[in-house]
């Protein structure tokens, strides 16, 4: 389970997270909603260990392990996966090479045998098929020349291959048509298990029709302003964040 207590963080000396308390028990999926600039991406970067996002207080643990003390790659090995809001293009790095290198790094961390090129290809093909992605994606540079939707699917492909115990999806649904949205949702739902948890950051209720969350949190100005069940998302869709602001 993910436990965040009193987490504060700043960027360029500017406080962005102002005391986040959040628990996602193993096996649960929680949604985080909130207006632009409220700190959702910042929270996801802080959990993943991005440089420049300075933690000034509080803690974050995954299954009792202190995440904040670890390097980004160690967090990944410990089971953290961040699907980026803006996936990064890596010209000159082949997608297949990238995916296999990442998968083998994670497998090494778990004490599992590394996959050779053939074994990897077999596995990757199976995942691609589930995500209705063309095999062509493996041959291209990572995210290079990918459409917005292809980039998001590539994130989900990585998640499906790496099988994290905590997935953080940062607006993976934005810019997707309804078919792509269902595929992304299927990708997350396929990972659902008693030892898997997810934080789904989204602006839209519609993703939550397909990934039904156990809880919905509203992040405003660096704090969790409200927490509720799936119905909270519907309510926000109807009345916006002003009502939360008023309540908070």
């Amino acid at each position: 389970m993910l436990r965040i207590e009193g987490l504060t963080a700043e960027v360029d000396g500017k406080p962005i997270l102002k005391g986040i308390d959040l628990e996602v028990p193993a096996g649960e999926v929680h949604a985080i909603m909130g207006p632009n600039g409220s700190g959702k991406s910042t929270l996801s970067y802080v959990l993943a260990g991005r440089e420049g996002y300075e933690v000034t207080g509080g803690s974050a643990t995954l299954n009792g392990v202190d995440l904040l003390a670890m390097e980004p790659e160690e967090r990944a090995a410990a089971g953290v996966f961040l699907a980026f809001q803006y996936p990064v293009e890596l010209p000159g790095v082949g997608n297949a090479n990238f995916l296999r290198t990442a998968l083998n790094a994670i497998r090494r961390g778990k004490g599992e045998a590394e996959l050779d090129a053939m074994q990897f290809l077999k596995l990757a093909r199976a995942r691609l098929k589930e995500l209705q992605m063309s095999e062509d994606m493996l041959k291209r540079g990572v995210n290079v020349g990918f459409s917005g939707g292809e980039k998001k699917r590539n994130e989900v492909l990585q998640m499906a291959l790496l099988r994290p115990s905590l997935a953080i999806l940062d607006e993976t649904d934005s810019g997707l048509d309804i078919d792509a949205l269902k595929i992304v949702a299927d990708g997350v739902n396929a990972l659902r298990a008693p030892d898997f948890s997810a934080l789904v950051i989204t602006h839209y209720q519609r993703l939550l029709d397909y990934i039904v969350p156990d809880k919905v949190h509203v992040l405003m100005q660096g704090r969790i302003a409200q927490t509720g069940g799936p119905e909270l998302a519907k309510q926000l869709e109807a009345s916006g964040y002003a009502s939360v602001q008023a309540a908070a």
Partner: peptide
């Protein structure tokens, strides 16, 4: 780019060399 690779579990040295 470096962070993206590391966030996928690839150690820093390897990420740099890639």
């Amino acid at each position: 780019q470096l962070f993206y690779l590391r966030a996928r579990g690839i150690p820093e040295g390897k990420a740099r060399s890639m």
